[in-house]
Design a binder for these strands. Structure first.
Length: 288
DNA sequence: AAGGTAACCTGACTGC
DNA sequence: TGCAGTCAGGTTACCT
């Protein structure tokens, strides 16, 4: 579920209900996800006010009084807002209870119970870490954050930047797009989708793509991510009781998961191959 | 530095 | 119905 658009949709979904609110309690039900969980937050977090929720790549950063909660959803993670008291399911690993009552804007039902931010992650590839002190410092110095690549939805991410970044690379463009140390947020779905829209074959050597085609690729990456955020936003606007599933953008896929189906542009069957243990989908006629 | 592979983990699905 | 095998939206660690 979570590439950049899904993480951003999650951020926008939970922020209005939580920002400005104080924590009442925290509960950890497993010792670790990808990394050990910060169990000491059970005593450290209560009383702290949530000042902001920001995103860096696929990481969510919740800024509190004395530090920051870093959350990564991995392959199967999701965050939901619930009224306190709802029994945790098998893979609901972390709860953070806020003192504000849950008010469902799009729901007739209102609850007077406190609102719970609940992290579910069946595969446990996700992460939750506590970063003490200043967030700005961690963005530049933390081992997980400092190594992150450029944000694709910024003006700095443009054709000239990408041309420079890819110069000399012999690796295929598709896995290169997914390398978070170069560009953050582009996962397996949006890599295939962006390359389809740009008309670039996924196996093209990254360093041998012209500036003109890279400018086109930058544009399709931005438009694909932006469209997915909009589509996700329309279905996940109400995070209360949401199942955290991805939004309606699936209906707009040109290539991903469409093996054997007709290309929406030229009607040739969409093909599937493996690159770096991951499935790649493309149209051999539209993408050269 | 670059490039490729295995590993982490559970659940859903396919085919026999 | 059961069981084995495969696959899944991510990332790091560890090879060459």
């Amino acid at each position: 579920m979570p590439e950049l658009p899904e993480v951003e949709v999650t951020r926008r979904g939970i922020a209005p209900a939580l920002v400005g609110q104080r924590v009442l309690s925290a509960d950890f039900r497993v010792p670790a996800l990808r990394y050990p969980l910060p169990h000491d937050l059970v005593t450290r977090l209560p009383g702290q006010r949530l000042a902001s929720i920001t995103r860096r790549g696929k990481y969510l950063l919740l800024q509190f009084d004395t530090g920051n909660l870093l959350i990564h959803l991995g392959m199967s993670g999701s965050l939901r807002l619930l009224p306190a008291g709802v029994v945790a399911d098998k893979h609901d690993h972390v709860d953070v209870v806020f003192e504000a009552p849950l008010v469902a804007k799009n729901s007739v039902a209102k609850s007077s119970a406190n609102v719970v931010l609940r992290l579910r992650d069946p595969r446990r590839f996700g992460a939750m870490l506590w970063l003490d002190g200043d967030l700005g410092h961690h963005l530049g110095h933390h081992a997980l954050l400092a190594v992150l690549g450029i944000e694709p939805l910024t003006d700095e991410f443009n054709g000239a930047w990408l041309k420079r970044e890819l110069t000399g690379l012999k690796a295929a463009i598709k896995p290169t797009l997914m390398d978070g140390h170069r560009i953050v947020g582009i996962g397996n779905i949006y890599a295939s989708e962006s390359l389809f829209r740009a008309g670039i074959h996924p196996r093209t050597a990254a360093g041998r793509i012209s500036l003109k085609r890279l400018e086109r690729l930058v544009a399709t990456i931005k438009e694909t991510l932006a469209a997915a955020i909009l589509a996700g936003g329309s279905s996940l606007r109400d995070f209360i009781h949401s199942d955290g599933s991805s939004g309606y953008f699936q209906q707009q896929y040109f290539a991903y998961g469409r093996t054997g189906e007709a290309c929406r542009v030229c009607s040739h069957p969409i093909r599937e191959m493996r690159q770096g243990q991951r499935a790649t989908f493309f149209c051999a006629r539209c993408q050269r």
